[in-house]
């Protein structure tokens, strides 16, 4: 009886929306931690101290930064297109948080039933996630075009060139995963990897997807739209104070959601052997902890890559996607078709 009521609450879409708002808050906190973590790790790589003054090991540095950004004057340049300048960050934020709605943040397993912690459940969530994440490019272009700054515009054009290259291999890899799971629902895809993760079944697909996703998120070595050595700050040069902060945060949230996507599509999601989750308490805690642990490892990898490799030139980036990743992703698609037809 209690279980029945619980299920009814879980089915309520309005309560799901409130859960989504909680997840939004959680990811903001998470993004703050990740920024601190990245600065600390970068300092370690370069044998510096990193943030160390605000709080133990500088963990509250981001709170201080947020206060600083909030108290900075908001400047809209005289030559800027005011309407687009204001709406650009809204489009960017909207696209990033629409991604968040469909992504599960873990799962709770009670009596063998899995309840994913996600704001919504739709049949086509992978397609939906790809679609809304592509909208962020439009937000970035609005920001850059409205600034009326040459550096910004160059950054935005590079952003388009990169997006054009990497959307296709990314899409083909997602299709390969969907074929193997037999569904476009991201929760079903995560469940389908119960004994064997998809990274083992389609390693090429994982490599292509990971590289394409890094490019999609604009992480170094693919941050040609920002490349601070040549373009000041690229697409966001004219933004100051909190307006800059919003764009900056959007990038970090995009990175976290992207890492979750990698774990859900290729690294087995929250699946654990049934022995571990049959216990009530462990079933509630372990799957989510396992999932978030893997997400942190992916984030760690992405950050380490950023501080270990130099930036590519834009034509090299575009060449990499069209001449190497696209054929490789098609090869992976063929491999997956063969595997499924052979009944593996």
């Amino acid at each position: 009886m209690i279980m029945m009521e619980l299920t009814e609450i879980l089915f309520n879409p309005w309560l799901r929306g409130i859960l989504g708002l909680c997840l939004m808050g959680a990811i903001f906190m998470g993004a703050m931690l990740v920024v601190w973590f990245e600065r600390k790790l970068a300092a370690d790589v370069q044998q510096r101290l990193g943030p160390s003054r605000v709080g133990p090991h500088g963990i509250f540095q981001l709170v201080a930064d947020a206060i600083k950004l909030l108290t900075k004057e908001d400047i809209i340049p005289a030559n800027a297109d005011k309407l687009l300048f204001v709406f650009g960050p809204m489009v960017l934020m909207g696209s990033i948080f629409l991604m968040l709605v469909a992504i599960p943040f873990g799962a709770v397993i009670i009596n063998g039933d899995t309840y994913p912690i996600a704001a919504t459940d739709m049949d086509i969530s992978v397609l939906y996630i790809e679609a809304v994440s592509a909208v962020s490019v439009i937000g970035i272009f609005m920001i850059a075009y409205s600034s009326n700054n040459k550096y910004s515009l160059l950054g935005a054009f590079r952003n388009f060139a990169r997006m054009i290259g990497y959307e296709v291999p990314l899409g083909i890899c997602v299709v390969s995963v969907a074929i193997m799971a037999g569904s476009l629902n991201i929760i079903d895809i995560a469940q389908a990897q119960n004994p064997l993760w998809f990274i083992i079944k389609q390693p090429i697909g994982f490599v292509v997807f990971f590289i394409a996703l890094m490019a999609d998120m604009g992480r170094l070595p693919f941050d040609q739209n920002e490349s601070e050595e040549e373009l000041i700050a690229g697409w966001i040069t004219e933004y100051t104070g909190m307006r800059f902060g919003l764009g900056f945060f959007a990038e970090y949230i995009h990175m976290m959601l992207g890492s979750m996507l990698v774990v859900l599509l290729f690294l087995g999601g929250w699946n654990l052997p049934t022995v571990l989750t049959s216990n009530m308490l462990l079933g509630i805690i372990l799957p989510t902890a396992f999932f978030l642990g893997k997400v942190s490892l992916v984030i760690l990898t992405i950050i380490m890559i950023r501080w270990a490799v130099p930036r590519f030139r834009i034509d090299q980036v575009v060449d990499l996607s069209w001449k190497k990743l696209l054929p490789l992703s098609l090869l992976n698609l063929g491999w997956v078709i063969a595997l499924v037809l052979l009944g593996v």
């Binding site: 879409p13 309005w14 799901r16 929306g17 409130i18 859960l19 989504g20 708002l21 939004m24 909030l70 108290t71 900075k72 908001d74 204001v86 960050p89 809204m90 934020m93 909207g94 990033i96 948080f97 629409l98 968040l100 709605v101 469909a102 704001a119 919504t120 739709m122 104070g241 909190m242 307006r243 919003l246």
Partner: peptide, 22 residues
């Protein structure tokens, strides 16, 4: 899609609200 709509409204309102605070 009800949760999607809720999140979209909040996400779109967030930048203007923050700027109002600023």
């Amino acid at each position: 899609y009800i949760p999607v709509a809720i999140i979209l409204v909040v996400a779109l309102l967030m930048p203007p609200m923050t700027m109002l605070l600023v």
